[in-house]
Amino acid sequence: MTQVATQILLVEDDPAISKLIVQFLKGDGAEVIASSNPERARQILSERTDFDLVIVDFLLGEVTAVALMDELRIILRDVPVVIISGGNPMTDLETTQAIADLSGAVAFLQKPFRKAELLDAVATSLK
């Protein structure tokens, strides 16, 4: 029997990091749809909602992922969301993690992270 690959939506505005994360996740057998901004993510979500997990960078350009997180909770309901962040000029990481928790994230991953840390967070979130 063929095992169905985990479907992951990634929202990350840094192309280099996005590429790396996609590489890590695909190497682990997942199928990843990458989006570089919330608008593109919304467009993808209007076309398909069969995701098992969403990974979102907290700061996407000039905006935080908070509004997108609120929308994800409505559109994808129980699909786990992992927030990743390396800190930003607006909030420190402790605050960012608290905001991620308030917004319904199941896991928070501090950048920089290793492949194993990302895969651990994904595996834990999918349990």
Partner: peptide
């Protein structure tokens, strides 16, 4: 917030 002066870790996913 003041900048952190001892940021370390892997350079790959730090941005």
């Amino acid at each position: 917030p003041e900048r952190v002066d001892d940021a370390g870790g892997d350079p790959d996913t730090s941005r």
